[in-house]
Write a protein that binds this DNA or RNA. Structure first.
Lengths: 95, 95
DNA sequence: ATATATTTGACAAAATTTGACAAGTCAATA
DNA sequence: TATTGACTTGTCAAATTTTGTCAAATATAT
């Protein structure tokens, strides 16, 4: 769980940017940015797009991590059946 | 995409039960039951449990289908990256 | 110790979900 | 064809969840 947040934190830090600076681009409070990076809040898709632009990241890669977080959140509540549920889903979305 | 609803409809019909009868057990409106079977509404976990009892179904099996529906709903919005996102998730929940 | 960066908790506002109700369709049949 | 019974559909208010801000608390660095 928090694939997306970790990644954008890495990207931000490697570019020596402050939370405040990224937050300003998204036009949100710094506190919210902090929550997003720590996975306490989920970024909206619009925010994801802005972040990826500002950090010069690969949008598709971020989107992938972001979706993985969503799926993991679902699964976390029913770990007993997660594996079989994933198998069912794979049949429809497998490669 | 409506794994759960289809399954409970099958179960109900094979037992010659009316929507109204299942709805009564769950103490919900027949209209809502209809929506659940057609996947227009999601059953709550409590409802799932009651349904599975009333239809003498395997609760774990229904839970699996129900979770698969949830995951599919997430994925449907981002099919481009679905496969890779699933791969990330599998690493953590793979059998 | 001070200044700056980040985190936390509480809260209101916004968005989504839930379920009921009323009206509708469809099929069987009196 | 009128009625009845089973199911479906659209709409709405209520309930729940999510979102983002603010103020205060921590942490980090100088």
């Amino acid at each position: 769980m928090n694939n997306f947040g970790q990644k954008i934190r890495e990207l931000r830090e490697s570019q020596n940017l402050l939370l405040r600076q990224v937050a300003a681009q998204l036009e949100v409070d710094t506190a919210l940015m902090s929550k997003i990076e720590r996975g306490e809040r989920k970024a909206s898709k619009q925010q994801l797009i802005k972040i990826s632009k500002f950090l010069n990241a690969n949008e598709e890669e971020l989107l992938t991590l972001w979706l993985a977080d969503k799926i993991e959140a679902n699964i976390a509540e029913e770990p007993q059946v997660a594996y079989n549920a994933m198998k069912i889903v794979s049949k429809k979305f497998g490669k």
